[in-house]
């Protein structure tokens, strides 16, 4: 499949947007302004970009505990996203959720969840709903290699397959679940092998290459929209940082780290776009500047925003307080 030039520019822009957003988060975190913990998406940007560029606005994504990149790529308001990470009143969840629950429903994010693998059955339900409501909506469900060891994985893949739901499973295999390497937890090193066991067409792609992710997603989404049922895409990728805020990730062998650090998602898509003449260096630079401005603005907005008033803790348990 030849990817259109405009699409290459989209893929570059979205990959870079997520990168710059996360670098800003890391910077603000360094100023001690981000409470709690943080699971950065740095390194995996091409997955969120490749998947979301292949989706329509009316499609849905289900996110994880490592969700900043997913929601920003899906089109979340960066000001509200950043403010949420800082626990501000202006955050997309009014400061109730934070990093692990960063969510903007009206751009098609079903939710970010702190419970690993809890998103899979929810994605099944959303896809079932799309089918029952006779829409053309598709659900893309992100989850990690670690999540694929949870019982919900098997239950959800099976249900999606028997009901032929419009669902795309996106496995972000970054080779680790916290400090546990996949070599210890998955007899086959490919999660895609498990997909086949549920009669779900499954492929492995280079998760640091936004074009590969995009092409696989386009095919899977087409199948889903046409009533062909679920597919699974395993994206091999790597965290540029530790698992969470204070994890130095010393458990990863240096040669492995070096290998993956040399495969920077932003550089890869940029080079493809340049080679295909979809983009000039100058255009790339101007895109970067524009994005950087927006990200800086989001940072300022979040920092300047107010904290919620303490009693707001009582709001939103039910639609009407009881």
């Amino acid at each position: 499949m030849a990817v259109k030039k405009a699409t290459l520019v989209d893929l570059f822009t979205r990959t870079l947007k997520v990168r710059l957003f996360e670098e800003k988060v890391w910077d603000i975190f360094g100023q001690n302004l981000v409470p709690g913990t943080l699971h950065l998406y740095l390194g995996q940007e091409a997955v969120a970009a490749g998947v979301t560029v292949a989706l329509k606005e009316t499609d849905w994504i289900q996110s994880t505990h490592r969700g900043h990149g997913h929601v920003v790529a899906k089109g979340a308001d960066m000001n509200a996203a950043m403010a949420e990470l800082l626990g501000k009143k202006t955050g997309s969840c009014k400061g109730k959720g934070g990093s692990m629950h960063i969510t903007q429903f009206d751009v098609g994010v079903l939710g970010a969840t702190g419970v690993v693998a809890s998103g899979l059955p929810i994605a099944v339900g959303a896809a079932l709903s799309a089918q029952m409501r006779k829409t053309d909506e598709v659900v893309a469900c992100f989850f990690g290699d670690g999540a694929s060891n949870n019982g919900t994985f098997g239950e959800s893949l099976n249900m999606a397959a028997i009901w032929q739901l419009p669902l795309v499973w996106i496995v972000e295999n970054n080779l680790y679940a916290m400090g546990t390497p996949i070599t210890l937890t998955c007899p086959s090193q490919n999660i895609a092998d498990r997909g086949e066991a549920y009669c779900t067409p499954s492929v492995v792609v280079d998760g640091n290459n936004a074009v590969e992710v995009y092409e696989a997603t386009v095919e899977a989404v087409k199948r889903a929209r046409e009533g062909g049922g679920p597919s699974l895409i395993e994206c091999k990728t790597y965290r540029m940082r530790g698992h969470s805020r204070f994890d130095p990730a010393k458990y990863r062998p240096q040669d492995e780290v070096d290998h993956w650090m040399g495969r920077d998602a932003v550089e890869i898509i940029k080079n493809i776009a340049l080679e295909q003449k979809a983009l000039t260096e100058k255009q790339a630079e101007s895109i970067r500047k524009k994005l950087q401005k927006a990200v800086d603005k989001a940072g300022d907005f979040a920092i300047k925003s107010e904290h919620p008033a303490p009693e707001e803790a009582l709001d939103d348990v039910f639609k009407e307080a009881i």
Binding site: P35, G36, G87, K88, G91, C93, G95, K96, G97, G98, H101, H307, P308, A309, P310, E311, E312, A313, L314, V317
Partner: peptide, 15 residues
């Protein structure tokens, strides 16, 4: 209070 545990420090301190 009978709510989930909120994230923001001001809310959690109240909780």
């Amino acid at each position: 209070p009978d709510t989930p545990v909120p994230f923001s420090p001001t809310l959690e301190q109240y909780f």
